[in-house]
Computed example of a mutant assay.
Amino acid sequence: MKFASEFRDPKAAKALLAEIAQLADRIGATREKPVAIMEICGGHTHSIFRYGLDKLVHEGVEFVHGPGCPVCVLPRARVDECIEIAEKSGVIFTTFGDAMRVPGSKRSLLQAKAAGADIRMVYSPLDALELARRNPEREVVFFGLGFETTTPSTALAIQQAAREGLANFSVFCNHITVPEPIKALLDDPDMRLDGFIGPGHVSMVIGVHPYDFIARDYHKPIVVAGFEPTDLLQSVMMVLRQIAEGRAEVENQYARVVPEHGNAVSLAAIADVYEKRPSFEWRGLGEIDASGLRIRPAYRAFDAEEKFGVGYAGVRTELADPEGCACGAVMTGRMKPVQCPQFGRGCTPEMPLGALMVSSEGACAAYWQYGGARAAAE
Protein backbone atom coordinates (compact mmCIF):
# COMPACT_ATOMS: atom_id res chain seq x y z
CA MET A 1 0.00 0.00 0.00
CA LYS A 2 3.00 2.33 -0.06
CA PHE A 3 2.25 5.47 -2.07
CA ALA A 4 -1.46 4.90 -1.42
CA SER A 5 -2.03 4.51 2.32
CA GLU A 6 -0.13 7.69 3.14
CA PHE A 7 -2.54 9.58 0.87
CA ARG A 8 -5.54 8.17 2.72
CA ASP A 9 -4.36 9.14 6.19
CA PRO A 10 -7.30 10.40 8.32
CA LYS A 11 -5.14 12.83 10.34
CA ALA A 12 -3.80 14.44 7.19
CA ALA A 13 -7.33 14.64 5.77
CA LYS A 14 -8.66 16.33 8.92
CA ALA A 15 -5.87 18.91 8.83
CA LEU A 16 -6.61 19.69 5.18
CA LEU A 17 -10.35 19.93 5.85
CA ALA A 18 -9.68 22.42 8.66
CA GLU A 19 -7.54 24.57 6.38
CA ILE A 20 -10.16 24.38 3.63
CA ALA A 21 -12.79 25.57 6.12
CA GLN A 22 -10.66 28.54 7.18
CA LEU A 23 -10.04 29.56 3.57
CA ALA A 24 -13.68 29.08 2.60
CA ASP A 25 -14.79 31.28 5.52
CA ARG A 26 -12.27 33.91 4.49
CA ILE A 27 -13.46 33.90 0.89
CA GLY A 28 -17.12 33.63 1.88
CA ALA A 29 -16.95 36.89 3.80
CA THR A 30 -16.76 38.69 0.44
CA ARG A 31 -19.32 36.71 -1.56
CA GLU A 32 -22.72 35.05 -1.30
CA LYS A 33 -22.29 31.86 -3.32
CA PRO A 34 -19.97 28.90 -2.65
CA VAL A 35 -16.69 28.64 -4.49
CA ALA A 36 -17.41 26.52 -7.58
CA ILE A 37 -14.52 24.19 -8.37
CA MET A 38 -14.82 21.93 -11.40
CA GLU A 39 -13.04 18.58 -11.28
CA ILE A 40 -12.43 17.94 -14.96
CA CYS A 41 -11.75 14.22 -14.65
CA GLY A 42 -14.38 11.57 -14.03
CA GLY A 43 -11.85 9.62 -11.97
CA HIS A 44 -11.77 12.57 -9.58
CA THR A 45 -15.56 12.60 -9.45
CA HIS A 46 -15.62 8.98 -8.36
CA SER A 47 -12.92 9.56 -5.74
CA ILE A 48 -14.89 12.51 -4.34
CA PHE A 49 -17.97 10.35 -3.83
CA ARG A 50 -16.16 7.16 -2.87
CA TYR A 51 -14.49 8.93 0.05
CA GLY A 52 -17.40 11.24 0.83
CA LEU A 53 -15.39 14.39 0.19
CA ASP A 54 -18.48 16.22 -1.05
CA LYS A 55 -19.97 15.82 2.44
CA LEU A 56 -16.76 16.54 4.35
CA VAL A 57 -15.66 19.81 2.76
CA HIS A 58 -16.89 23.17 4.00
CA GLU A 59 -20.29 24.27 2.70
CA GLY A 60 -18.57 27.20 1.07
CA VAL A 61 -17.09 24.83 -1.54
CA GLU A 62 -19.13 23.28 -4.36
CA PHE A 63 -17.82 20.50 -6.58
CA VAL A 64 -18.91 20.94 -10.19
CA HIS A 65 -18.55 17.81 -12.29
CA GLY A 66 -16.92 18.40 -15.66
CA PRO A 67 -16.83 16.55 -19.00
CA GLY A 68 -13.75 14.53 -18.08
CA CYS A 69 -14.69 11.09 -19.35
CA PRO A 70 -14.00 10.24 -23.01
CA VAL A 71 -16.76 7.63 -23.05
CA CYS A 72 -19.22 10.13 -21.58
CA VAL A 73 -18.58 12.82 -24.18
CA LEU A 74 -18.80 10.40 -27.11
CA PRO A 75 -21.72 11.42 -29.36
CA ARG A 76 -24.31 8.80 -30.22
CA ALA A 77 -23.46 9.17 -33.91
CA ARG A 78 -19.93 7.91 -33.27
CA VAL A 79 -21.32 4.77 -31.58
CA ASP A 80 -23.53 4.23 -34.64
CA GLU A 81 -20.45 4.53 -36.85
CA CYS A 82 -18.63 1.93 -34.72
CA ILE A 83 -21.52 -0.46 -35.25
CA GLU A 84 -21.55 0.31 -38.98
CA ILE A 85 -17.91 -0.74 -39.22
CA ALA A 86 -18.38 -3.77 -36.96
CA GLU A 87 -21.25 -5.12 -39.08
CA LYS A 88 -19.20 -5.13 -42.29
CA SER A 89 -18.27 -8.54 -43.60
CA GLY A 90 -14.88 -9.81 -42.47
CA VAL A 91 -14.37 -7.23 -39.71
CA ILE A 92 -13.24 -7.90 -36.15
CA PHE A 93 -14.04 -4.76 -34.17
CA THR A 94 -12.10 -4.30 -30.92
CA THR A 95 -12.75 -1.87 -28.08
CA PHE A 96 -12.18 -1.18 -24.41
CA GLY A 97 -14.88 -2.65 -22.21
CA ASP A 98 -16.36 0.62 -20.95
CA ALA A 99 -17.41 1.55 -24.50
CA MET A 100 -19.36 -1.67 -25.08
CA ARG A 101 -22.57 -0.55 -23.35
CA VAL A 102 -22.71 3.10 -24.46
CA PRO A 103 -26.02 3.48 -26.32
CA GLY A 104 -26.08 4.69 -29.89
CA SER A 105 -29.26 5.90 -31.56
CA LYS A 106 -30.64 2.35 -31.79
CA ARG A 107 -28.36 0.02 -29.86
CA SER A 108 -24.97 -0.40 -28.21
CA LEU A 109 -21.89 -2.31 -29.34
CA LEU A 110 -22.79 -5.03 -26.84
CA GLN A 111 -26.22 -5.38 -28.43
CA ALA A 112 -24.66 -5.43 -31.90
CA LYS A 113 -22.34 -8.19 -30.71
CA ALA A 114 -25.32 -10.16 -29.44
CA ALA A 115 -26.89 -9.75 -32.88
CA GLY A 116 -23.90 -11.37 -34.55
CA ALA A 117 -21.23 -8.72 -35.15
CA ASP A 118 -17.70 -9.83 -34.25
CA ILE A 119 -16.96 -7.29 -31.52
CA ARG A 120 -14.29 -8.13 -28.98
CA MET A 121 -13.18 -6.44 -25.77
CA VAL A 122 -9.44 -5.81 -25.51
CA TYR A 123 -7.25 -4.32 -22.81
CA SER A 124 -4.91 -2.41 -25.13
CA PRO A 125 -4.36 -1.72 -28.82
CA LEU A 126 -1.55 -4.29 -28.67
CA ASP A 127 -4.23 -6.96 -28.19
CA ALA A 128 -5.87 -5.74 -31.40
CA LEU A 129 -2.50 -5.89 -33.19
CA GLU A 130 -2.09 -9.50 -32.12
CA LEU A 131 -5.55 -10.32 -33.46
CA ALA A 132 -4.54 -8.80 -36.80
CA ARG A 133 -1.42 -10.97 -36.88
CA ARG A 134 -3.42 -14.12 -36.11
CA ASN A 135 -6.24 -13.31 -38.55
CA PRO A 136 -4.58 -12.05 -41.75
CA GLU A 137 -7.76 -12.73 -43.73
CA ARG A 138 -9.85 -10.44 -41.47
CA GLU A 139 -9.93 -6.66 -41.06
CA VAL A 140 -9.17 -5.83 -37.41
CA VAL A 141 -10.32 -2.39 -36.27
CA PHE A 142 -9.40 -0.85 -32.93
CA PHE A 143 -11.69 1.80 -31.45
CA GLY A 144 -9.15 4.49 -30.51
CA LEU A 145 -10.89 6.31 -27.68
CA GLY A 146 -9.65 8.52 -24.88
CA PHE A 147 -7.91 11.70 -23.85
CA GLU A 148 -4.17 12.30 -24.00
CA THR A 149 -3.74 9.48 -21.47
CA THR A 150 -4.50 6.67 -23.94
CA THR A 151 -3.46 8.48 -27.11
CA PRO A 152 0.23 7.43 -26.99
CA SER A 153 -0.53 3.69 -26.79
CA THR A 154 -2.70 3.89 -29.90
CA ALA A 155 -0.01 5.89 -31.70
CA LEU A 156 2.63 3.32 -30.81
CA ALA A 157 0.37 0.52 -32.07
CA ILE A 158 -0.07 2.31 -35.41
CA GLN A 159 3.70 2.80 -35.68
CA GLN A 160 4.23 -0.91 -34.98
CA ALA A 161 1.60 -1.90 -37.56
CA ALA A 162 3.40 0.28 -40.12
CA ARG A 163 6.75 -1.35 -39.34
CA GLU A 164 5.24 -4.82 -39.72
CA GLY A 165 3.14 -3.93 -42.75
CA LEU A 166 -0.09 -5.16 -41.12
CA ALA A 167 -2.44 -4.03 -43.86
CA ASN A 168 -5.44 -5.61 -42.13
CA PHE A 169 -5.14 -3.40 -39.02
CA SER A 170 -6.72 0.04 -38.64
CA VAL A 171 -7.87 2.48 -35.94
CA PHE A 172 -11.18 4.31 -35.73
CA CYS A 173 -9.68 7.41 -34.17
CA ASN A 174 -11.79 9.19 -31.59
CA HIS A 175 -8.99 10.55 -29.43
CA ILE A 176 -9.73 13.97 -27.98
CA THR A 177 -7.82 16.60 -26.01
CA VAL A 178 -8.64 18.25 -22.70
CA PRO A 179 -7.65 21.96 -22.94
CA GLU A 180 -10.07 22.88 -25.75
CA PRO A 181 -13.34 21.90 -23.98
CA ILE A 182 -12.18 23.77 -20.87
CA LYS A 183 -11.83 26.87 -23.05
CA ALA A 184 -15.32 26.24 -24.45
CA LEU A 185 -16.73 26.09 -20.92
CA LEU A 186 -14.92 29.26 -19.90
CA ASP A 187 -16.25 31.05 -23.00
CA ASP A 188 -19.82 30.17 -22.01
CA PRO A 189 -21.32 33.30 -20.39
CA ASP A 190 -23.71 31.16 -18.32
CA MET A 191 -20.96 29.06 -16.77
CA ARG A 192 -19.92 30.16 -13.27
CA LEU A 193 -16.63 28.54 -12.30
CA ASP A 194 -14.04 29.83 -9.85
CA GLY A 195 -11.31 27.25 -10.36
CA PHE A 196 -10.35 23.82 -11.67
CA ILE A 197 -8.88 20.55 -10.51
CA GLY A 198 -6.94 19.20 -13.48
CA PRO A 199 -6.61 15.51 -14.44
CA GLY A 200 -3.30 14.14 -13.23
CA HIS A 201 -3.14 11.22 -15.67
CA VAL A 202 -3.53 13.56 -18.66
CA SER A 203 -0.71 15.76 -17.39
CA MET A 204 1.51 12.69 -17.01
CA VAL A 205 1.59 12.89 -20.82
CA ILE A 206 1.24 16.58 -21.65
CA GLY A 207 2.67 18.25 -18.54
CA VAL A 208 1.11 21.33 -16.94
CA HIS A 209 1.78 24.12 -19.43
CA PRO A 210 -1.10 23.38 -21.84
CA TYR A 211 -3.30 24.83 -19.05
CA ASP A 212 -1.42 28.14 -18.85
CA PHE A 213 -4.19 29.89 -20.80
CA ILE A 214 -6.69 29.23 -18.00
CA ALA A 215 -4.73 31.37 -15.56
CA ARG A 216 -3.33 33.82 -18.09
CA ASP A 217 -6.43 34.58 -20.17
CA TYR A 218 -9.31 33.76 -17.81
CA HIS A 219 -7.69 34.48 -14.44
CA LYS A 220 -8.86 31.17 -12.95
CA PRO A 221 -6.64 28.91 -10.82
CA ILE A 222 -6.09 25.28 -11.79
CA VAL A 223 -4.33 22.61 -9.77
CA VAL A 224 -3.27 19.34 -11.42
CA ALA A 225 -4.25 16.67 -8.91
CA GLY A 226 -3.75 13.03 -7.98
CA PHE A 227 -6.62 10.66 -7.24
CA GLU A 228 -6.34 9.76 -3.57
CA PRO A 229 -8.52 11.59 -1.02
CA THR A 230 -5.74 13.75 0.42
CA ASP A 231 -4.59 14.55 -3.14
CA LEU A 232 -8.00 16.01 -3.86
CA LEU A 233 -8.32 17.80 -0.52
CA GLN A 234 -4.88 19.36 -0.92
CA SER A 235 -5.80 20.45 -4.44
CA VAL A 236 -9.02 22.09 -3.22
CA MET A 237 -6.99 23.85 -0.53
CA MET A 238 -4.48 25.05 -3.15
CA VAL A 239 -7.27 26.43 -5.37
CA LEU A 240 -8.87 28.22 -2.40
CA ARG A 241 -5.53 29.64 -1.31
CA GLN A 242 -4.98 31.12 -4.76
CA ILE A 243 -8.45 32.70 -4.71
CA ALA A 244 -7.96 34.05 -1.19
CA GLU A 245 -4.61 35.58 -2.18
CA GLY A 246 -5.94 37.00 -5.44
CA ARG A 247 -3.77 34.75 -7.60
CA ALA A 248 -4.51 32.65 -10.69
CA GLU A 249 -1.81 30.14 -11.51
CA VAL A 250 -1.26 26.60 -12.76
CA GLU A 251 -0.01 24.49 -9.86
CA ASN A 252 1.05 20.85 -9.75
CA GLN A 253 -0.13 18.97 -6.68
CA TYR A 254 0.68 15.64 -8.36
CA ALA A 255 4.40 16.37 -8.76
CA ARG A 256 5.33 12.87 -7.58
CA VAL A 257 3.97 11.59 -10.90
CA VAL A 258 3.48 14.55 -13.27
CA PRO A 259 6.57 16.09 -14.90
CA GLU A 260 6.29 19.78 -15.74
CA HIS A 261 6.78 19.27 -19.46
CA GLY A 262 5.14 15.87 -19.81
CA ASN A 263 6.48 12.62 -21.24
CA ALA A 264 8.80 13.29 -24.18
CA VAL A 265 8.50 9.79 -25.69
CA SER A 266 4.69 9.87 -25.60
CA LEU A 267 4.52 13.38 -27.03
CA ALA A 268 6.85 12.40 -29.88
CA ALA A 269 4.65 9.42 -30.80
CA ILE A 270 1.53 11.60 -30.71
CA ALA A 271 3.15 14.23 -32.92
CA ASP A 272 4.30 11.61 -35.42
CA VAL A 273 0.98 9.80 -35.84
CA TYR A 274 -1.73 12.43 -35.28
CA GLU A 275 -2.71 15.90 -36.35
CA LYS A 276 -5.46 18.16 -35.07
CA ARG A 277 -8.91 17.93 -36.62
CA PRO A 278 -10.48 21.28 -37.55
CA SER A 279 -13.26 20.41 -35.09
CA PHE A 280 -14.75 17.46 -33.26
CA GLU A 281 -18.22 16.85 -31.84
CA TRP A 282 -18.54 16.45 -28.06
CA ARG A 283 -21.68 15.17 -26.43
CA GLY A 284 -23.28 18.08 -24.59
CA LEU A 285 -20.83 20.63 -26.01
CA GLY A 286 -21.26 20.29 -29.78
CA GLU A 287 -18.42 20.88 -32.21
CA ILE A 288 -15.27 22.25 -30.56
CA ASP A 289 -12.45 23.60 -32.71
CA ALA A 290 -9.19 21.63 -32.71
CA SER A 291 -10.36 19.34 -29.91
CA GLY A 292 -9.92 16.01 -31.69
CA LEU A 293 -7.07 14.14 -33.32
CA ARG A 294 -6.98 12.38 -36.66
CA ILE A 295 -4.40 10.09 -38.20
CA ARG A 296 -1.84 11.82 -40.41
CA PRO A 297 -1.73 11.09 -44.17
CA ALA A 298 1.54 9.19 -43.72
CA TYR A 299 -0.42 6.56 -41.75
CA ARG A 300 -3.62 6.72 -43.84
CA ALA A 301 -3.49 2.97 -44.52
CA PHE A 302 -4.30 2.45 -40.83
CA ASP A 303 -7.12 4.98 -40.64
CA ALA A 304 -10.50 3.19 -40.37
CA GLU A 305 -12.37 6.38 -41.31
CA GLU A 306 -10.59 6.43 -44.66
CA LYS A 307 -10.67 2.66 -45.13
CA PHE A 308 -14.42 2.33 -44.50
CA GLY A 309 -15.64 5.83 -45.47
CA VAL A 310 -17.28 6.58 -42.13
CA GLY A 311 -17.02 9.31 -39.51
CA TYR A 312 -15.57 12.59 -40.66
CA ALA A 313 -14.45 10.88 -43.88
CA GLY A 314 -18.05 10.01 -44.72
CA VAL A 315 -21.55 11.41 -44.24
CA ARG A 316 -22.10 12.35 -40.59
CA THR A 317 -25.32 12.94 -38.69
CA GLU A 318 -25.42 14.71 -35.33
CA LEU A 319 -27.90 13.09 -32.98
CA ALA A 320 -29.51 14.68 -29.94
CA ASP A 321 -29.72 12.84 -26.63
CA PRO A 322 -32.87 10.77 -26.03
CA GLU A 323 -35.86 12.72 -24.79
CA GLY A 324 -35.50 13.52 -21.10
CA CYS A 325 -31.81 12.56 -20.99
CA ALA A 326 -29.71 15.40 -19.55
CA CYS A 327 -26.19 14.06 -20.09
CA GLY A 328 -25.08 17.28 -21.77
CA ALA A 329 -26.27 19.45 -18.90
CA VAL A 330 -24.66 17.17 -16.30
CA MET A 331 -21.32 17.01 -18.12
CA THR A 332 -21.08 20.78 -18.38
CA GLY A 333 -21.89 21.34 -14.71
CA ARG A 334 -25.28 22.92 -15.30
CA MET A 335 -27.14 20.15 -13.50
CA LYS A 336 -26.44 17.49 -10.88
CA PRO A 337 -27.19 13.90 -11.91
CA VAL A 338 -30.10 13.59 -9.48
CA GLN A 339 -31.76 16.58 -11.18
CA CYS A 340 -32.03 14.67 -14.46
CA PRO A 341 -35.66 13.51 -14.84
CA GLN A 342 -34.47 10.10 -16.04
CA PHE A 343 -31.98 9.41 -13.24
CA GLY A 344 -32.88 6.18 -11.46
CA ARG A 345 -36.11 5.94 -13.45
CA GLY A 346 -35.64 5.60 -17.19
CA CYS A 347 -31.86 5.48 -16.77
CA THR A 348 -30.10 2.98 -14.52
CA PRO A 349 -26.81 1.05 -14.85
CA GLU A 350 -28.78 -1.97 -16.03
CA MET A 351 -30.71 0.02 -18.66
CA PRO A 352 -28.76 3.21 -19.35
CA LEU A 353 -30.06 5.98 -21.56
CA GLY A 354 -26.85 7.97 -21.47
CA ALA A 355 -23.11 7.35 -21.29
CA LEU A 356 -22.79 8.97 -17.86
CA MET A 357 -24.56 6.00 -16.29
CA VAL A 358 -22.49 3.49 -18.28
CA SER A 359 -18.92 4.67 -17.88
CA SER A 360 -16.88 3.73 -14.84
CA GLU A 361 -15.98 7.44 -14.65
CA GLY A 362 -19.44 8.87 -15.34
CA ALA A 363 -20.91 11.32 -12.84
CA CYS A 364 -24.28 9.55 -12.84
CA ALA A 365 -22.61 6.21 -12.11
CA ALA A 366 -20.74 7.86 -9.21
CA TYR A 367 -23.95 9.27 -7.74
CA TRP A 368 -25.65 5.90 -8.14
CA GLN A 369 -22.83 3.91 -6.59
CA TYR A 370 -21.62 6.21 -3.83
CA GLY A 371 -23.96 9.12 -3.39
CA GLY A 372 -26.93 7.42 -1.82
CA ALA A 373 -28.96 8.45 -4.85
CA ARG A 374 -29.80 4.86 -5.69
CA ALA A 375 -31.74 4.42 -2.47
CA ALA A 376 -33.47 7.74 -3.02
CA ALA A 377 -34.49 6.74 -6.54
CA GLU A 378 -35.84 3.41 -5.32
Rank of each mutant, 00 (worst) to 15 (best):
Gln159Ser: 03
Val224Leu: 15
Gly200Lys: 09
Met1His: 04
His219Asp: 12
Met38Phe: 06
Cys82Lys: 02
Met238Ala: 14
Phe227Glu: 13
Met331Ala: 09
Ser124Ala: 09
His219Lys: 03
Val239Ser: 08
Gln242Val: 09
Gly200Leu: 12
Ser203Asp: 08
Ala15Ser: 10
Leu17Val: 03
Gly346Ile: 07
Met238Gly: 07
Asp217Ala: 06
Arg138Cys: 07
Leu74Val: 10
Val236Arg: 07
Thr94Gly: 07
Leu193Ala: 05
Ala77Tyr: 09
Ile295Ala: 04
Glu39Cys: 09
Ala313Val: 00
Thr230Pro: 00
Ala99Ile: 09
Ala375Val: 13
Leu109Gln: 15
Gly195Trp: 13
Ala248Tyr: 07
Leu131Gln: 09
Asp187Asn: 12
Lys14Ala: 05
Phe227Leu: 15
Ile243Glu: 00
Ala248Pro: 03
Leu232Gln: 04
Leu185Cys: 08
Phe7Glu: 02
Val338Ser: 14
Ala366Cys: 11
Tyr370Asp: 06
Asp212Glu: 08
Ser89Gln: 03
Ala365Thr: 14
Arg374Cys: 01
Asp188Arg: 00
Ile222Met: 05
Lys183Val: 12
Asn252Ser: 12
Glu275Arg: 13
Glu361Ile: 15
Leu145Tyr: 03
Asp9His: 11
Gly97Leu: 03
Phe7Thr: 12
Thr30Tyr: 12
Glu39His: 15
Arg334Asn: 06
Thr348Met: 14
Asn174Tyr: 05
Pro181Phe: 09
Gly311Ala: 06
Asn135Ala: 14
Asp54Asn: 14
Phe96Gln: 06
Gly52Asn: 08
Asp231Arg: 14
Ile214Thr: 01
Glu87Pro: 00
Thr95Leu: 01
Glu260Lys: 11
Gly68Val: 12
Phe280Asn: 05
Leu17Met: 02
Glu84Thr: 00
Asp80Gln: 02
Lys113Tyr: 01
Val61Trp: 11
Ala99Gln: 01
Gly292Val: 01
Asp9Cys: 15
Val257Ser: 07
Val79Pro: 09
Glu306Cys: 00
Asp289Thr: 04
Asp118Val: 10
Gln253Val: 10
Val250Gln: 03
Arg8Ile: 06
Asp289Tyr: 00
Glu228His: 15
Asp303Arg: 00
Ser47Phe: 04
Glu275Met: 12
Leu74Cys: 14
Phe96Tyr: 15
Glu84Met: 00
Thr151Tyr: 12
Asp80Pro: 03
Pro103Ile: 15
Ile288Gly: 03
Leu74Phe: 07
Ala115Asp: 12
His44Gln: 14
Val64Phe: 10
Pro181Cys: 09
Ser5Ile: 06
Pro322Ala: 07
Thr95Cys: 08
Leu267Tyr: 06
Ala355Trp: 01
Val250Ser: 06
Ala313Leu: 05
Phe169Met: 01
Ser203Lys: 01
Pro103Asn: 09
Val257Trp: 13
Val330Gln: 07
Val315Cys: 05
Phe172Val: 00
Glu251Val: 10
Val57Leu: 02
Pro199Met: 15
Glu62Cys: 14
